[in-house]
């Protein structure tokens, strides 16, 4: 029984990590004033590039960084459209959601003999488990804490993001640009630069998120791997009230959803349909959202293009 609980917690953490990277990306982008609905597309391209580079190079960290860069490039596209050309940010994000999977599958077919699935990674090309061997094999703590490096990294990044946003000058500038770009501009903060920074970083993080899926949770890329997780991460951003720590709790909830589904799918212990259980976290999210009182918490200028001298 104890090990079952451990298994659920461990699996939840594992599934929360990809969402967490991506949601942190959403947090930084939205705080700088740019809505990023393209997280899904950026996550997908990251997942593919991570798996492909991992397969060819054999080093998980090079693969992970490559995934981040790929996400960053697509985010650059979003930034050019929405910051420089004042695009409707939602529309531009939707475009990224077509381009990301499109490019990923296109390249996959070219590299992997027409297949939209990449070849499986060898063990050495997968994300390592840094604490492997620290605990007695299959003990309670082993099941929970013996995680892929990406899981630790994701939670460390929550702290880094919180610290950056709320305790540094850069973070203050980012939030100022997201709340009231005109005042920030008056004070000499470059709205354009900050927003480019926020959007590109969000793409890098979403790319990491994709790779945390394709080279850690599983060991290849396939078209259905991400399907919707970027949107879940987006929901986590809103659920978490646009704050890193809030997004973390939301991601843990969604991770737990997947952990439970995996557990029930494998064990078949409890006689409840796994479909109904899988539904539960989404219902719960709605219930919790209804319970929230103070509603309008989005950065005030999120979603609005900034034009000098308006």
């Amino acid at each position: 029984m104890l090990n079952d609980i451990g298994f659920i917690i461990g699996t939840s953490l594992m599934y929360a990590a990809p969402l967490l990277f991506t949601a942190l990306g959403g947090v930084i982008s939205e705080n700088s004033g740019v809505v990023n609905i393209g997280l899904e597309g950026m996550m997908t391209i990251g997942a593919f590039i991570g798996a492909a580079v991992g397969y060819y190079v054999g080093n998980p960290w090079i693969a992970f960084i490559a995934a981040g860069l790929a996400g960053g490039i697509f985010a650059l596209l979003h930034a050019i459209a929405s910051v420089t050309f004042h695009a409707d940010q939602v529309v531009s994000g939707i475009a990224i959601n077509f381009l990301g999977p499109g490019v990923a599958l296109f390249i996959s077919r070219l590299l992997f003999n027409g297949s939209t699935m990449t070849k499986s990674l060898s063990f050495s090309a997968k994300m390592p488990r840094p604490l492997n061997g620290l605990f007695r094999s299959n003990s309670f703590s082993d099941i929970i804490f013996n995680q892929y490096a990406t899981v630790y990294l994701a939670f460390i990044l929550v702290f880094v993001m919180w610290y950056t946003l709320y305790k540094t000058k850069l973070g203050l500038r980012i939030r100022a640009v997201g709340e009231h770009p005109a005042s920030a501009d008056t004070l000499g903060v470059s709205v354009t630069k900050i927003r480019y920074f926020g959007v590109i970083l969000s793409g890098i993080l979403a790319g990491f998120g994709g790779a945390a899926m394709s080279i850690a949770v599983v060991s290849n890329f396939r078209p259905t791997l991400i399907s919707g997780q970027g949107f879940i991460a987006l929901a986590a951003v809103i659920f978490g009230k646009w704050k890193p720590q809030g997004a973390m709790w939301a991601c843990l909830l969604f991770g737990a959803a997947q952990g439970l589904t995996v557990y029930l799918g494998g064990a078949g212990v409890i006689n409840i349909s796994s479909q109904l259980l899988a539904m539960l976290p989404y219902v719960l999210t709605l219930v919790v959202l209804v319970g929230f009182v103070g509603k309008s918490v989005a950065p005030a200028a999120s979603g609005e293009a900034y034009e000098k001298g308006e």
């Binding site: 597309g41 596209l77 459209a81 929405s82 050309f85 004042h86 695009a87 409707d88 529309v91 531009s92 939707i94 475009a95 990224i96 959601n97 077509f98 381009l99 990301g100 999977p101 499109g102 490019v103 599958l105 296109f106 996959s108 077919r109 070219l110 027409g114």
Partner: peptide, 30 residues
Amino acid sequence: QPPLGAPSEVVDIMIGTIVLFIAIPKLFKI
């Protein structure tokens, strides 16, 4: 795909590009 071996996902890339340009009428104006 069958005759050329060209990935059909080029369609998604086309759709994404169309939507991206639709988002930025300003570019054409400029």
